[in-house]
Amino acid sequence: MIEARNLTRRYGPTVAVDALSFDVRPGSVTGFLGPNGSGKSTTMRLILGLDRPDTGQVRVGGRRYRELRWPLREVGALLEARAFHPGRSARSHLAALAASNAIPRARVDEVLDMVGLTGAAGRRAGKFSLGMGQRLGVAAALLGDPAVLLLDEPVNGLDPEGVRWIRDLLKSLAAQGRTVFVSSHLISEMALTAERLVVIGQGRLLADTTVAELSAGSASLEDAFFRLTSAAVEYQGSTAKEATS
């Protein structure tokens, strides 16, 4: 369970997250959608206590992140593809994180196996492809067998097999009763993975609903998303114009 209440965070004159309140419930995958720059990553960082909200608060499993007794055993997070030292092996990276939360060493090999990195575990992680780095990030998130999972754009850089793997993994984790909160800008992917959706634009909540509800009345989830966010898109491209000679 993740409970965000009235979260606001400014960076200078920019309001990244604006009075945002939502709940993420256990038992289903909740997609976190929004255009580029809408505040998804900032919200994730606020949940993890990496950044502080100006006002409001967010609780994970009833506590603020900072008050968790064994954070990695309660919350697993994938924030960026390359949150590891390039000179350290995948196994050492995970072993270090495991030690900080008294997670048994055997669990490291277990998660390496789950993400398919056993064969590359001893290699310097700096040599990893983006997809392998993403898998290592997922392994770190799963390390503490947490009840709450937070993943920021987990399919970035993954090949089609990897995308399907993440999709099935997230669904099975949710089916086990865990809280799974996944941000993405790939709406078609969310249509396949998520049951519930939290949609934000310019830091504000636009919808807290289910995939079925949101797509009702539109040709696709994508169309529904565009209608919802049309007023809140900050960076918008125009269709290519014909070159004038």
Binding site: R73, S89, A95
Partner: peptide, 30 residues
């Protein structure tokens, strides 16, 4: 991955001993 985590979180809280172990692994693994 067969149990949910709430049942397996041990008592107590992480402290300097655990964090120092992490830092020792980080230091020696480079």
């Amino acid at each position: 991955m067969t149990t949910t985590a709430e049942t397996r979180v041990p008592s107590g809280r992480y402290g300097l001993a655990q964090v120092a172990r992490m830092e020792w692994i980080k230091l020696r693994s480079l």
